[in-house]
Amino acid sequence: MTAIRNIRAVTAKELYCYFASPVAYVFFIIFLMLMGFFTFMWGNFFEQGEATLSSFFIWHPWLYLFLVPAMAMRLWSEEQQTGTIELLFTLPIKPWHAIAGKYVAGSLFLGLALVLTFPMVISINILGNPDNGIVLTGYFGSFLTAAAFLAIGCLTSALTRNQVISFVIAVVICLLAILCGFPPVTDAVLDLEVAWININTLVDFIAGFSVVPHFQTMQRGVVDVRDVLYFLSVIVFSLFATGIVLRSKRSI
């Protein structure tokens, strides 16, 4: 009970801080503008001639690659930089309450950003006759991708008090998470002739770590337990590691 109350208090305060500073508005505007730009300019949204959001969702991981680390970098770096972490960890709460509270606030924020893309859904419904179930699973997959990146950003911001360093590390990790399953990359690797190892299995194995294939199945309207488990395990692992990093910093 106290756990839930504490988490709720931290979440409320973090959300308040997002909206009290320009961060939230800048984030929303850039997110929506880039989303529209990529979808309409490069996604051939109109030329496809079918009422789906596939040309919309395909850009999501790439946008999250920069935007999510940018909003996650302050989560713990700022607390360490200003010393407020000393206040937080001398309050009668368990560290995981604070970690969960901050994480929930960040994911609600990202969820809200996604909700603000609703005009997309409306326009395809006007233009054609889409399968809204597929749209919904696509949104679900997109949210999970963002949530996984957020957890990674959480971990890297716990690592350092420097927000820039935290951002850069998070972008690199997220980039790897996209690229290792990105078809152009995996195809290129498959073209290499390596004799001593079964390259197909290896590539499949590594691609399993990528967010892209897991997200793609959801874009096709399939919610597979394995895909959901994949995202959940990335999140849980990262948050758990965040806790360990923060703990080890207090016992240097």
């Binding site: 305060k13 801080c17 010393g83 407020t84 206040l87 001398t90």
Partner: peptide
């Protein structure tokens, strides 16, 4: 704490 750390935005 030393130097009175606070959350600036609230």
């Amino acid at each position: 704490p030393e130097n009175a750390p606070l959350y600036g935005d609230v």
